[in-house]
Nucleic acid binder design. Structure first.
Length: 213
DNA sequence: CCCTCGATAATCT
DNA sequence: GATTATCGAGGGT
């Protein structure tokens, strides 16, 4: 049947665990151009990853694992190749790819993708027809792909959500900047994106206000 | 186009 | 009690 053929093809190109066990900054860069696939009720949603951010270990003050393990961040301590999904600002989800070996808490935040398949479904989930506003932000991507905490901790080698190599050479320049929306760790340029791609998020560097009474 | 601000609740201290 | 790896509405330019 049609669905099985598609599934076999996707399995063939699925990134394996050794990819995710690599250093987080490398994974963050190499995820650019890869295709993230969500299977939902027999339907496929897919998009090209165009923007990522790295969060690396207990010494990175912007990483959720800064200061050690908590109930929320324990998924980051799993071996690379798991999904880490968290809830923030009282209404949004963010999706991360866990990286590196078991016990080392690190992950890559998927900040934006370019819609490829299932675009009409994404428009419904996002309640907009503007294709440039579907997936150009970490919480927008989650809403478009129906990602919530039920995916927290699932394996990226499974069928619910995974990443594949498109198998064709794509030429692009990688841009980098400090990470977005954080108040610490702003000295690290650990945000990566495909330069010139129109589906990259609109950047607003958060103004630093500290010690204000 | 731009910028400011409010929403809204899990999470951690 | 404070903060938050965000987004969209609203109003000004």
């Amino acid at each position: 049947m049609k669905f099985e053929v598609a599934k076999l093809s996707l399995d063939h190109r699925k990134l394996n665990q050794s990819f995710y066990l690599q250093p987080t900054l490398k994974v963050a860069r190499e995820l650019l151009g890869k295709i993230i696939v969500r299977q939902l009720d027999g339907k496929i949603l897919a998009g090209r990853i165009v923007e990522t951010e790295a969060y690396v270990g207990e010494n990175d003050p912007a990483c959720h694992a800064y200061g050690g393990m908590t109930p929320r961040n324990k998924i980051m301590y799993l071996p690379g190749g798991h999904a880490y999904v968290y809830f923030t600002y009282g209404m949004h989800y963010c999706f991360n790819v866990v990286t590196e070996k078991e016990g080392f808490p690190a992950a890559v935040l998927i900040r934006a993708v370019e819609p490829i398949e299932g675009i009409e479904i994404m428009k419904k989930f996002r309640n907009t027809d503007d294709i440039y506003n579907l997936t150009n932000g970490p919480a927008k991507f989650c809403q478009a792909f129906k990602i919530d905490k039920s995916l927290n901790g699932v394996s990226l080698l499974g069928d619910e959500i995974f990443i594949i190599d498109p198998g064709i050479e794509m030429q692009f320049k990688i841009g980098r900047s400090q990470r977005i929306g954080i108040s610490v760790g702003t000295d690290k340029k650990w945000r990566f994106f495909i330069q010139g791609n129109p589906f990259v998020s609109k950047v607003k560097i958060k103004p630093r206000i500290k010690n204000v009474k």
